[in-house]
Amino acid sequence: MELVCPAGSLPALEAAIDNGADAVYIGFSDETNARNFGGLNFNDKNALRALERIRNRGRKLYVAINTYAKPDSFTRWQAAVDRAAGLNADAVILADIGLMGYAQRRHPDLALHLSVQASATSAPALEFYRQQFGIRRAVLPRVLSLKQVQQLTAASCVELEVFGFGSLCIMAEGRCHLSSYITGESPNKNGVCSPAKAVEWRKVANELETRLNGVLIDRFADHENAGYPTLCKGRFIVDGKRQHALEEPTSLNSMALLPELKAAGIKAIKLEGRQRSPAYVSQVVRTWREAIDQVLQHGDDFLVKDRWQETLAKNSEGKQTTLGAYDRPWQ
């Protein structure tokens, strides 16, 4: 099982390599990737440095170009694919079918991974992407239960990658309109959920207010943990009660399922967090490296160690970890 780790900067990429990443995924500094935040990601100079470090240590580099191209600026997305191919990246992670078609025609040797944003949840969908665009791997959406992941792996014609750890969103990958509803910008088109320019934190009396484009989405008392300022994680008054109406700030943690995922034939585990610092990458990657090594060596005797759980809990959004969507006994 390959451990695929996030990097939003060169030091984060080094931290991932040093702590045992098999592959690192990065994005360019523009809206062609879904973590388009100020000061984050790689310009051409740093992308070259990233590749050099990856090659020196015998790891793989994937480039996420996982947003949907706009009709009037498709050339920017094409240029991103050309840049990744020019770098000789080991794969590009794509969601847009127009872009997949372009990549396949223009760079037939470039491996294509289907992004989670494409939201392919059935074997026929995966087969379609393979036939049409020759994708080698697909990242599965987090809406699936473990049983569904197992069924899909048995039927799939391509390698499958699942999320191991990271902040959860509302899990309508590639189809979520909440951010654009309130800010006019969305992960799918602009590469940002809740763009920072629309976010305001304001201390009012003893509470911290979060506003998104002027709209109040949450209010935290002093003792409460905060989450990312997204509409899906806000608290709203429903039936007279203030609550997380859509989703609680939660991080996914599928570590306990590693033996089952391995037995099912999952080829890669992805860690979320290109927006996080090298400190997060070091801690989380090291923990997952140890866990995966343990599964590879001891198989079914695998138990999640308290120390791993503590590290992951500390780095979690909302300080909760959960099996998330992989655990849906009712499905």
Partner: peptide
């Protein structure tokens, strides 16, 4: 420590223009 972790725990605060 990771700044986002400290932010979640309310130990790091951002005011004014978040960007």
């Amino acid at each position: 420590e990771d700044p986002d972790t400290l932010f979640f725990q309310r130990r790091l605060c951002l005011g004014g223009q978040t960007e």
